[in-house]
Amino acid sequence: MTVPLSKSTPPLMEIHSLTKTFPVAQSLLSRWRGQPRRAVQALTDVELTVRRGETLGIVGESGCGKSTLARTLVRLYDADRGSVRYGDLDVLSLRGPALRQYNRRVQMIFQDPYSSLNPRMTVEAVLREALSVHHMRPAAEQPARVRELLQLVGLPPEAAGRLPHEFSGGQRQRIGIARALALEPECLIADELVSALDVSVQAQVVNLLLELQERLDLTVLFVAHDLRLVRHISHRVAVMYLGRVVEVSDTEAIFTAPRHPYTQALLAAAPTLDPSRRTAAPAITGELPSPLNVPSGCAFRTRCPHAFERCATERPALLKLEDGPEVACHLYDPVSTAQATG
């Protein structure tokens, strides 16, 4: 059974113009010369809607801002500007108890299972700490809940007394998931949850995620670079390039009819499993530009085979096409089409 999702499924989270920069350390000399402070443009005017109960895949090259987006959504980073609505909450202005409450409802699971667990805390202590901090259960009920959580993520009850280093990578990811689930969240943000794992262990963790999503009615943001996995589990996919969302669409549409030239290049470069289908020409040439120096206009124009004049001067907005997908590319903008044909 898959969650029935339709175009009318209400949004859970609405992200508008979300922007985040990281200032770069400046040398004394350049400060003395009065050179402007430089900044990494990690997110630029991100537009994205997350629907209740869906799995939204987020893909894009290394450094395009996927983790920054995830961390900004759970308020680990402060956004420069923009807005995030979650139900009727204005996420970016939450403080104190309201923020803690939001952080319980929206949980992040981190990329690295090794560094996100305290090496000296047993699994039971890790889970009880999560339960106590958010006042989820009185102390007397915690041991029972710990057993329940372990069972939920497929770990034996004895796991409670062990330390993180006694587990394999896949098991440690399960502990991370159990800790997130302890808080009974509505939304999980999984940042490269399975990237470091063996193929077979990946399959175990993905199954767990699918099962939990059905049982607990979770919304999942699945950040990953493995396109095959993203295609398998996502209802919709957002493609990012240099801090911007360049295409959002239903999973099938992204993979069978990608619109944005970058999405097309990304799919063409992904190695297929069929040795008899090897492609001859390189999918894309040129280097990812520095996020310190994002090209004017369309950020992809330095590598885009279709770039034309307007791409250098005007930044393409994310526009909704008639048949569903949202794309940020002048090729799909009626103004350009009119210019090109007229």
């Binding site: 898959t2 193929v199 077979s200 399959a203 993905v206 295609r231 398998h232 589990i233």
Partner: peptide, 19 residues
């Protein structure tokens, strides 16, 4: 087992088959 644990075509959101 290794090849079977990969997500295949037309199996959207079905459980995978880990070893």
């Amino acid at each position: 087992g290794l090849l079977q644990s990969l997500p295949g075509a037309g199996e959207h959101r079905r459980p995978l088959q880990p070893i």
